[in-house]
Design a protein around this nucleic acid. Structure first.
Lengths: 237, 237
DNA sequence: AAGTTTCTGTGCGGTATCACACATATGATA
DNA sequence: TATCATATGTGTGATACCGCACAGAAACTT
């Protein structure tokens, strides 16, 4: 496969698509397409990262695993962003795991090449930093939401965040997995999802959730969703 | 007051102290000392920031205010860091408020000067970015902690984070304020603090908390504290 | 010294979530 | 079609935290 195989795919990633043409051309030869399947681990907590990933269709969840085995999601990234910010922030590793929440593709770039491009201080750097600020907001708002809001609202938030990063209205995801992301019991998700289904906002069967009424979800979600969404829109256009 | 009045104070901030001498000399004339009193608002949510602040003795809390008036802390910064990362990350504002948790001093730098220095891509940029990654970890771990841990443990975490940023063993802080930070009821803090006092870890009277047994607190806190602490140590030496 | 404000302690009922147990339904496979 | 693994629904009791109400204690004011 030639080095330029990522051409059309790369533009599906909003950050890459926002680059000025010259910079995009310069970076393009260093991008290679990869595909991920559900549940795959992209980075291990504290593990060395060889590449940075620009999702095109994949959705990647950043989650922390407690010593006792429970887990909670701290953030999510799709084609609006990038996975592996530690590579340009200077830390190289992160104390959390990145796993595939929805199968799909990405383009990746070698860490060394990324760092060299970043150091130029051009549009690429500017975009990556603005994205990182948006991620900061997502994570901090997750903290607030975890503290102050009920499972129902958090499920809405989670569904909307996923829907934003997907072309389809169908999510392949069991309630068990959602529970791991939200850091709650599976039964809690069952109850909350049941309510949303009764209200006609979603429908689901065995690991398949369909968004029926996005407006309705937006009306049911807590303010946290909008805070994060607005910040992404503001920072990344 | 001459422009170099901040000389000794500035070195109390770990980020500034870690700069190579030439860079520090270059930056020094642009630093001006300021002092903050308890409860003062450093940045308003979404408000334009004119300066970036390098705390020397002040502790500043980043918190989000819900529409309904409740609040929760997403992060804290003291002399190990800086307040106003949005100024170099490119967003200029943040959707949260920064308020003074413990009165004290800082040195500040004009936004424009900061941005110019940042753009040089030298040690200053490297330090600021590594700090921001540490902050990212603090915020994300706060999200996890809010989800999975009990008030007792979170109070320990909060006390230790504050103690780390203070020279003294005494915290001037009412249970009411701590409750606002943790996003819980005041009574919940009363109960948790009562337990810690019975165990001989702290003592308090009317808005004054004394850390009696730091080791004991470290034994009682959840793993979240150590994750964040280790990450700060790793990234900022 | 008396009054006032602020801070802390405590009790009570309500609710959300938990942990566990088990029943049911769905889809895949033989 | 029968079997099996997986996903979802439901019930029960325990616990943590909430909201509210109010009492006591400490500091400040006059």
């Amino acid at each position: 496969m030639p080095a330029t195989a990522g051409t059309p795919a790369a533009l599906t990633n909003h950050l890459l698509a926002a680059l000025p043409p010259e910079e995009f051309e310069r970076i393009l030869p260093h991008l290679a397409p990869v595909s991920f399947s559900l549940g795959e681990v992209v980075y291990e907590s504290g593990g060395q990262m060889e590449h940075i990933y620009f999702p095109t269709t994949v959705i990647i969840s950043l989650l922390y695993l407690m010593e006792n085995g429970s887990s909670a999601e701290m953030g999510v990234a799709g084609n609006e962003g990038v996975v592996g910010v530690a590579l340009f922030m200077g830390g190289n590793t992160m104390p959390n795991r990145a796993i595939v929440q929805s199968a799909g593709g990405a383009v990746r770039m070698k860490a060394t090449v990324l760092q060299e491009e970043f150091r130029r201080g051009d549009a690429f750097q500017r975009l990556l930093l603005r994205y990182t600020q948006a991620l900061l907001t997502q994570m901090s708002q997750t903290a607030v939401c975890n503290r102050l809001h009920a499972i129902d609202q958090q499920l809405c938030r989670w569904l909307l965040l996923s829907h934003d990063r997907l072309e389809s209205d169908d999510l392949v995801m069991t309630q068990e997995l959602i529970a791991n992301m939200l850091g709650v019991r599976r039964e809690g998700v069952t109850t909350a999802a049941g309510q949303l289904q009764e209200q006609g906002l979603i429908s689901y069967v065995r690991g398949r959730i369909r968004i029926l009424d996005r407006r309705g979800l937006e009306a049911a979600v807590c303010e946290c969703y909008k805070v994060v969404k607005d910040e992404y829109d503001r920072l990344l256009n």
